[in-house]
Design a protein around this nucleic acid. Structure first.
Lengths: 111, 111
DNA sequence: TGAATATATAAGTAAATTATTATAAACTTA
DNA sequence: TAAGTTTATAATAATTTACTTATATATTCA
């Protein structure tokens, strides 16, 4: 189905940032909580939270509290998911980031 | 083929602007010169030139002088064309812009 | 309940972005 | 060659962006 050009530009602007683009690639396969992203990107926690908020505000990702943590996940029901999926597919896998977390004992396992 | 994540973010940032995204959708089917874009977007000529320069600097579009005019066209040989094409396909046709130019006698026919 | 952990929000700042006006350069044509 | 047309570039102003630090809120657990 055709996408609105204004909305498409808003979505692409959000993806036009290395941090957010990497987040989206990761979230396409793995749910993650804020502190995991802090560990992955070596960035301040507020900065990570603000990036996730932008993605959430347009509905690209969902948030869900699990105990102490708030997990973010790809919102695959969003109208723009099919729009961006062909892009994400062409990006290199970021699984190594998750594997590194696991190796370092930093991966959060919950619920 | 997989795309570099940094480069992909740069390309997406460029597309994350309504004017440039519309330009790219138009150029996917029609070559255009600067003054046609000025007419389409009702924007100053330097502003149009600057948008086109950004697209050209990363190789997404090509420029070619034809007599008095400089025509821009999609660079379909560019590595990132296949990256963005699935996006462009999902955007609504902008043919009406070209048709309007023709109807108003503003379409440039050259060489 | 109180301390520790995880996250969000607010405020401030430096850098990047997108427009504008003014001007220069290149080409066409009378 | 001179005037008109088209485009690029330079300088600048307004806005947006992406970070930072400080602080508030929510949850867990001893």
């Amino acid at each position: 189905m055709k996408k609105d050009l204004n909305q498409a530009a808003i979505v692409l602007k959000l993806l036009g940032d290395k941090t957010r683009l990497t987040m989206m690639k990761i979230l396409d396969f793995h749910d993650c909580c804020v502190c995991e992203f802090v560990e992955i990107f070596k960035m301040s926690q507020p900065s990570i939270s603000q990036h996730l908020r932008k993605l959430r505000d347009v509905g690209l990702v969902k948030e869900e509290r699990r105990g102490q943590w708030i997990f973010y996940s790809m919102n695959k029901e969003n109208h723009y998911y099919e729009f961006i999926q062909p892009l994400l597919e062409q990006l290199p896998s970021q699984n190594y980031q998750i594997e590194r977390l696991e190796k370092d004992g930093k991966r959060i396992v919950c619920c």
